[in-house]
Design a protein around this nucleic acid. Structure first.
Length: 558
RNA sequence: GCGCUCGUGGCUCAAUUGGAUAGAGCAACGGACUUCGGAUCCGUAGGUUGAAGGUUCGAGUCCUUCCGGGCGUGCCA
């Protein structure tokens, strides 16, 4: 699809290049129309040619004004501001907006995206929300744009911490109790283990020994381990369902266990593995610490498991790109991992990418999983849903109040998480999560609900009408926003930033609400009403598509 | 100590990637439909973009130094 503005921008750029015989031209879109719709920046040309900007604009303006659709061009302070004719802009915008919500053609590029990846021996807390949501949305965006996306949940189902859990279960565990609330009861055990280990450090040794036995394939331990994984995954899947998150594959760390020795051999064959202080490591030079593959006791570390997993994703899953949606606190680990893989196979360097994100920050409580200070994701979701329900009490919602509250409450939590740059830390602030006014998911849902409501009320079937009666000037501002939908998604994909889509949705809702407060949708003249309906339906389609990418549902009423 | 990262109105965030007068939401104050949903809309007030240099026609954005917060820094993940 071609965008109106982009076409004219390209024309302008070519004109500047041809007229002045320069290599680069800078043309900029304007945010408000007082400076026109587009501006040619003359300074760079002026510098290159040694001519003053006024002189340049005098030669440029007559040529620019001949372009189809251009109303006028004015010289202001080193810029040539280009004004597009309203009717030209309106009809062009309307036409390019029509296929905005359609799926794009295949890009023939496979992206494996690793997100959520909870650690089964640790609780599924609010902290895991970020990877889950951000990963899901980045996957959805790429999917929408036509990439071949493979969603992988790299479950933390292996490692020394399982030794701790196994010790704790053996000593204090009761399966009947655990099965009822696996996530919470396992946390209790995890906390108890650390309490006891402070008094009796030998427990740590026992845990290491347990894990070593598990890794050797002790059948009794494997059975317990498997049970543990199964009940935890089942529990976590319930949360995924509420968040509209899904995966193509659940491949935990244990899946790569059989591939580790082969990975180790390949590293050794390249001469990359050295022994250091009893451990097996890959040296990465002075600037960063070595990558430790195996510890003194010979058991594996997550770096080696990640190397095996990375090789599998490239060689077996045929990934062209791999996104790791994992907190920024692990950036050193990924730096090491990617350097090792580059040493092993130079051409693999371009494949993996770490998409880090900031932590949840808590004002009062010092959060420590080991001490049991955990805010469970499910509690946050439930509180938000309760708040939505409370607001709806005063309205006549009928029987669906639970469903609707679920959509609104969950949406608010998701949106709060992704509405700014993912690299920044997020303050955990109940008030803000539960504030449904302003730039929030409920605001977007409310806007969509009002559009739906107006369409219902008008009771005209516009699906059979093939062309719009009038494209009115009052549509202009909103149509300009509509046109940016796909471009926003592309930018969000390019930067791997969900907030770009989130901000866009706020913007389009603002544009609609502004229109809605000034103009009546349903009018006496049916053609007028039909025009308005087609216009607001276009906006609704975009909002719905955008929200479905965020994994947020929109109710009929709220 | 070293490495990575963030710093923009009272608070939470934007800024088309180096372009004109730095924009939104929350909080505050003042307004707006006797017909489509007020979880809305419009307006007012609030800024030396942490500090100082530098690069150039032009810097919130790039480079240097410093200050402040966060995360990491060899056998957890």
């Amino acid at each position: 699809m071609e965008f109106v503005m982009n076409i004219i921008i390209e024309k302008l750029e070519n004109i500047v290049k041809d007229t002045f015989d320069v290599k680069h031209a800078i043309v900029k879109k304007q945010k408000d129309r007082s400076f026109g719709d587009l501006s040619v920046i003359l300074f760079p040309v002026s510098k290159q040619l040694g001519k003053n900007v006024k002189e340049l604009s005098d030669t440029l303006i007559p040529i620019v004004e001949k372009i189809e659709g251009v109303d006028k061009a004015q010289f202001v302070k080193g810029y040539v501001n280009v004004f597009i004719k309203d009717d030209y802009l309106l009809s062009s915008l309307w036409n390019t907006c029509q296929d905005q919500t359609c799926e794009k053609q295949s890009k023939d590029k496979r992206i494996v995206i690793d997100y959520s990846s909870p650690n089964i021996a640790k609780p599924f807390s609010i902290g895991h929300l970020r990877s889950t949501i951000i990963g899901n949305i980045i996957a959805n965006i790429h999917d929408f744009l036509g990439y071949d996306v493979v969603r992988v949940n790299h479950l933390g189902d292996w490692g020394t911490q399982f030794g701790k859990v196994l010790v704790a279960i053996e000593k204090w565990g009761d399966w009947k109790v655990i099965e009822q609330q696996p996530v919470r009861r396992l946390l209790d055990l995890y906390v108890k283990f650390h309490d006891e280990a402070e008094k009796d450090p030998s427990l740590e040794d026992k845990a290491r020994e347990k894990f070593a036995r598990l890794e050797e394939g002790d059948s009794e331990l494997i059975e317990i381990w498997k049970k543990l994984v199964d009940i935890s995954v089942e529990n976590i899947k319930r949360v995924y369902e509420r968040l509209n998150v899904h995966f193509d594959k659940y491949l935990g760390e244990s899946f790569y266990e059989p591939m580790m020795e082969n990975a180790m051999k390949r590293l050794e064959k390249k001469g990359l593995v050295v022994e250091s202080q009893g451990a097996q490591v890959v040296d990465l030079g002075e600037k960063i610490p070595p990558c430790i593959l195996k510890k003194q006791d010979g058991s594996s570390l997550y770096a080696l498991r990640d190397i095996a997993a990375l090789l599998y994703r490239i060689e077996e899953m045929k990934a062209d790109s791999i996104f790791y949606v994992v907190g920024s606190e692990q950036s050193l680990h990924f730096k090491q991992l990617f350097q090792v893989i580059e040493k092993l196979e130079k051409k693999y360097k371009e494949v993996p990418e770490h998409l880090g994100f900031g932590l949840y920050r808590f004002k009062d409580i010092k959060m420590s999983t080991r001490k049991g200070h955990v805010i469970f994701l499910e509690d946050v979701l439930n509180d938000s849903v309760d708040k939505a329900k409370e607001i709806m009490k005063d309205r006549d919602m009928g029987d669906n109040i639970d469903d609707i509250a679920e959509m609104i409450g969950i949406g608010a939590v998701i949106f709060n998480d992704i509405s700014s740059d993912r690299i920044k830390d997020v303050d955990f602030d109940w008030e803000r999560i539960l504030d449904f006014n302003g730039e929030t998911s409920p605001y977007i849902q409310y806007t969509a609900v009002r559009i739906k409501s107006a369409i219902r009320k008008a009771n005209i079937d516009i699906s059979k009408i093939d062309s719009i009666p009038f494209i009115k000037e009052e549509y202009l501002e909103a149509l300009k926003v509509c046109e940016k939908f796909t471009a926003s998604l592309e930018r969000a994909a390019e930067k791997r930033q969900p907030y770009i889509l989130a901000n866009y949705l706020i913007e389009i809702c603002g544009a609609f609400n502004n229109f809605y407060n000034k103009h009546k949708i349903i009018q006496d003249d049916e053609k007028n009403t039909v025009s308005n309906l087609m216009f607001i339906k276009l906006i609704l389609d975009i909002i719905e598509k955008g929200m479905s990418i965020l994994g947020i549902r929109i109710p009929e009423k709220m």
